[in-house]
């Protein structure tokens, strides 16, 4: 029953619907579930019957069907090693990401509000920025005493540059009328920074965080594969995939890949939720 017919029957009074009814009427949710189910069916059919009219289906014919993946997943779910991988990857992502936020947001704001600081530091920043995080891996393996620290450093770099450039751009594009309005009402530099520049930059801070989070996952996974297992700096979902590859277990590789997809989805949902919470005025759009 739709919300509209509920209202008609209740003669203009919206009856309180139960949690179950609301779940039933949540079309967005059902469409999402339908999309996932359809994708799984395609995948299953494609990889089970890989010969079509005498041609081998490219790619999908080679990967294991979802049912095999599910079986492999069930086998790893009770293993503590699998959850250890989640924990290690998440820890690395969060550490690199948070440090990048803590350093990147103040630096971006400082670059935006102080001309001399910007003119002095921005050229150096712009030369370092295009260097891909993975290009830093060999150097950081040499410079940092442990593998773990190298991974953390490279992860940090991945998010750092994106965050700074977003914050800088956001703060620089704040409408000058807002600053002048505040000034003409007697705001001090301090007031303007906290009450105008900072909230005005929040949308860009969250854009930077969303993009930075994505890069962080990429970098962590790559770094985990490069650094390999071993006693220090090992483990993580990247190593889980690498290990499955070395062991020749295709379903386990896919399990690792989907785990990363879920982890990324959880991370970006968290950022979206935080953004909605921090910027109530943006919820209207």
């Amino acid at each position: 029953m739709t919300a509209v017919s509920d209202m008609v029957q209740g003669a203009g009074v919206v009856r309180k619907r139960t949690r179950l009814q609301r779940l039933k009427d949540n079309r967005k949710l059902w469409r999402g579930i339908a999309a996932v189910v359809i994708a799984l069916v395609f995948w299953e059919v494609g990889s089970r019957w890989d010969q079509w009219f005498g041609f081998t289906l490219p790619f999908i014919g080679l990967i294991p069907p979802p049912t095999d993946v599910a079986v492999a997943w069930m086998s790893v779910l009770p293993q503590p090693g699998y959850w250890e991988s989640w924990y290690l990857s998440f820890k690395r992502v969060l550490a690199g990401f948070l440090v990048a936020q803590l350093v990147g947001i103040p630096l971006g704001l400082a670059l935006a509000v102080n001309r001399y600081f910007r003119e002095f530091f921005f050229p150096v920043f712009e030369i370092l920025r295009p260097i891909p995080p993975l290009a830093w891996v060999p150097a950081s393996l040499i410079f940092w005493p442990t593998n773990e620290m190298s991974i953390a450093f490279v992860t940090f770099l991945g998010a750092f540059f994106t965050i700074v450039i977003n914050v800088l751009g956001g703060a620089r594009t704040i409408d000058i009328s807002l600053l002048r309005a505040a000034q003409s009402m007697g705001a001090t530099q301090w007031d303007m920074f906290w009450k105008i520049v900072l909230p005005g930059t929040l949308p860009s801070i969250f854009t930077g965080a969303a993009v930075g989070m994505g890069i962080t996952w990429e970098v962590v996974l790559a770094a985990e594969m490069i650094s390999g297992g071993g006693t220090q700096g090992g483990g993580g979902l990247g190593f889980f995939i690498w290990n499955s590859y070395m062991g020749g277990s295709l379903p386990h590789i896919v399990v690792g890949m989907i785990s990363i997809g879920i982890a990324g989805y959880v991370s970006s949902s968290a950022i979206r939720w935080l953004g909605d919470w921090a910027m109530p005025w943006r919820r209207l759009f």
Binding site: S177, A181, S184, G186, P199, M279
Partner: peptide, 17 residues
């Protein structure tokens, strides 16, 4: 700049937040 002369701008400058 002082609050004895307050400006209202062409494109509106209410703080959106």
């Amino acid at each position: 700049q002082g609050a004895d002369r307050v400006v209202v701008f062409q494109n509106g400058a209410l703080f959106p937040w």
